[in-house]
Every structure is written in structure tokens, then in C-alpha cells.
């Protein structure tokens, strides 16, 4: 079995690292790097005896995650300064929300883009404010622009010209064309202020968003990291509050994401032994397929199971767009690919 299987086992039960034969470590480290989970693994294994060279690699990974955290928080601060005069709610999402909220899910996490949620009505003002202060369109392409504006749940990505960091401005957490429609207003209304003008989603909403991000918004590439986010969120929120699980169920229903959240919880329990109430457990039909996809990474860091991955790729487009729209989208993308060769 591949590197991702051992990686998941170590994340679930770090004490097992003690018994891992030295020759297995290279495979675990390669798989963890490929899945963007080496920092998380390093934090999980701190204090556990590992071979000296492994300890040095894990130390570097923790260090790298600390720098990633610093850059993410500063990028949030830069956006805060620019958006503060607009007096609109700005909710941090994903990795930046985890580190800004001091959550376990942020420990060792690598953070690339800054993801924020703002009210749809504020989108134009936010766009104008960002464009006036150093952010530029990352892809100057007319079709993609129209595509984003008509069909997507976010502005086209903006890149800051000095800091070279991307911001994704969302007005909801799934494209309007997707099969399920999360309640963006409820997400904004339930957000928890951080005290500096920014906020992060309520705990249940964070889990719902992470589950949607994992299972309803993409082809599961990098999915193991997203599932680890879910494990850490469930671990932290479930432990500190007995009513969390019933609120999670209600919130999942509000966002039309009951099935997605339930599957994410089952997979988290299955792969990472997350403590989960009895009625959330037990794998269902189809879960095994997701599990195979999530663990498709060998001990050289290569993706395996090409057929499973291809199936998930098609599924990802299927879920996000009604078929006629999908056909049109793929046709335009295909034409664009051949166009430069003709001109």
C-alpha cells in the first residue's frame, strides 16, 4: 500500500511513529509533501521519538508552516486595511480563518491564497477597493472573466503586484450552478468577530464549508488535506461543546449539505479515527470509492489510480454545472486551447 495510507495512519495515531521502520520514512515524507500535509504531520508528531534525520525534516516543516501562517495573517491584515472603510462584513475562510482563529486545524497548515467571503451586494465596492490598492487580475482573459462573473461564486482571482499573493473574494461558497445552494446570508450573519474588523465562520459553518469544499467543489485533488482540516475541526469543536453535533446537523440542513457533511464525517472517522457520535458512523455505499481516491498517493509521492482520479474529475464538473452548460464550458475551453496554434 502507498505512502498516503501510512501518512493517514500516523496522523490518526501519532504514537505509531515510534515503531515505524526507518526505511519507511522517506515514503511517508514524500507522500506528506505531495498532499501538503508535512507541516500538519510534523505538529502532530512533536514530542514523539523519531530518527534524528526525520526529526530535522519535521522541524523544518513546522518552521515552514510558521512562516506560512505569518504571511497569511499579514495578507489578511492588508485586505482588512483596504476594506475597513467600506464597512462591510469580511469573513476569512479556510486556512487563514483557521490560523486567525487559533484553531487546531491551523497547526502546521500551509496556506496559499487568501479566501474571504463578503456580501454579494458589496462585491463591486470590494473589487474596486482592491484594484485601487495594488491588486491586479491574475488572468487577463475576457472569457474567463465573463465565466467567473456569470457562473462562479467568487471574483476572478486577484494578485497583489508587490506581495505576489492571491486573494479569492467569494460571495458564497459554491457556484450558483451547483446542485446544492448554501445559505451565504446565514454564513455572514453567524460569523464570529475576531475583534479587528474581520471575522471567521461559526464552528458548524466552518465544518459545512470544509465538507462542501472537499466533496462538492472539485475533483478531490489534495483532498486528504481537506479531510484532515475536517478531522481537526470536529476534534476541537466536538470536544469543547456537547451540543455541537446537533447544531452541525441543523446547520448542514440549512445549507442543503446534509449528505455531504455526513459523508465527510464518516470519511474522517474512517481515515483519521476522529471521535464521532455513534449515529454519524458506519461507511455507506460509495464511501469506499472516496476513500480510494483520497489515499491515491504512493511512497514516491506519485498519484496512483488514474481511472479513479479521472472519474472524480468528470464528477467535479458534473456537480458544478448543469449538463448543457458543462458542454458549452468544455467546448469553449477546448477551442481556446487550439486557438493560439491557428493564429
Amino acid at each position: 500500500m502507498g505512502g498516503a495510507v501510512t501518512l493517514a495512519a500516523l496522523l490518526a495515531a501519532p504514537a505509531k511513529a515510534d515503531a515505524l521502520p526507518q526505511e519507511k520514512w522517506a515514503g511517508v515524507i514524500a507522500a506528506a509533501r505531495a498532499e501538503q500535509l508535512l507541516g500538519a504531520l510534523a505538529c502532530r508528531l512533536s514530542g514523539i521519538a523519531v530518527p534524528e534525520r526525520v526529526g530535522a525534516i519535521l522541524h523544518d516543516a513546522r518552521d515552514m508552516a510558521a512562516e506560512s501562517r505569518r504571511a497569511a495573517l499579514w495578507e489578511a491584515e492588508m485586505a482588512r486595511r483596504v476594506l475597513a472603510p467600506l464597512a462591510v462584513p469580511v469573513v476569512l475562510l479556510k486556512g487563514t480563518a483557521f490560523v486567525a482563529g487559533g484553531l487546531a486545524a491551523g497547526q502546521g497548515r500551509m496556506i496559499g491564497d487568501l479566501d474571504v467571503l463578503v456580501p454579494r451586494a458589496a462585491l463591486d465596492d470590494v473589487e474596486r477597493a482592491l484594484l485601487a490598492t495594488g491588486w491586479e487580475w491574475a488572468k487577463p482573459d475576457a472569457y474567463d472573466d465573463v465565466y467567473y462573473r456569470r457562473w462562479m461564486h467568487e471574483l476572478p482571482p486577484l494578485l497583489h503586484r508587490d506581495r505576489d499573493r492571491l486573494i479569492d473574494v467569494h460571495h458564497t461558497i459554491l457556484p450558483p450552478t451547483a446542485r446544492i445552494t448554501p445559505d451565504a446570508d446565514a454564513l455572514l450573519a453567524g460569523a464570529r468577530p475576531l475583534g479587528n474588523g474581520l471575522s471567521i465562520p461559526a464552528p458548524e459553518d466552518m465544518v459545512v464549508h470544509a465538507a462542501i469544499h472537499l466533496l462538492a467543489d472539485g475533483d478531490l485533488a489534495g483532498g486528504l488535506r481537506n479531510l484532515w482540516d475536517i478531522d481537526r475541526l470536529l476534534f476541537e469543536f466536538g470536544e469543547e461543546d456537547g451540543a455541537f453535533w446537533s447544531r452541525l446537523r441543523a446547520r448542514a440542513a440549512l445549507h442543503q449539505a446534509v449528505g455531504v457533511v455526513a459523508r465527510a464525517v464518516r470519511l474522517s472517522h474512517a481515515l483519521f479515527a476522529t471521535a464521532v457520535p455513534d449515529d454519524w458512523r458506519g461507511l455507506r455505499a460509495g464511501d469506499a470509492w472516496f476513500r480510494r481516491r483520497l489515499l491515491a498517493r504512493d511512497e514516491w509521492g506519485r498519484e496512483t489510480r488514474a481511472a479513479t482520479r479521472a472519474a472524480f474529475y468528470i464528477r467535479s464538473h458534473w456537480m458544478r454545472m448543469p449538463p448543457p452548460l458543462l458542454a458549452r464550458h468544455l467546448a469553449i475551453k477546448a477551442w481556446k486551447r487550439v486557438a493560439p496554434a491557428r493564429s
Binding site: Q22, W25, A26, I29, A30, P51, R53, V54, A56, I57, W300, G301, R302
Partner: peptide
């Protein structure tokens, strides 16, 4: 290198 720092793949 007993535990290598890095993996390179030629494929």
C-alpha cells in the same frame, strides 16, 4: 542517505 531529505523522480 539513510533518511533522505528530498525525493527526485525521473519518469
Amino acid at each position: 542517505a539513510d533518511v533522505p531529505d528530498f525525493t527526485v523522480r525521473l519518469g
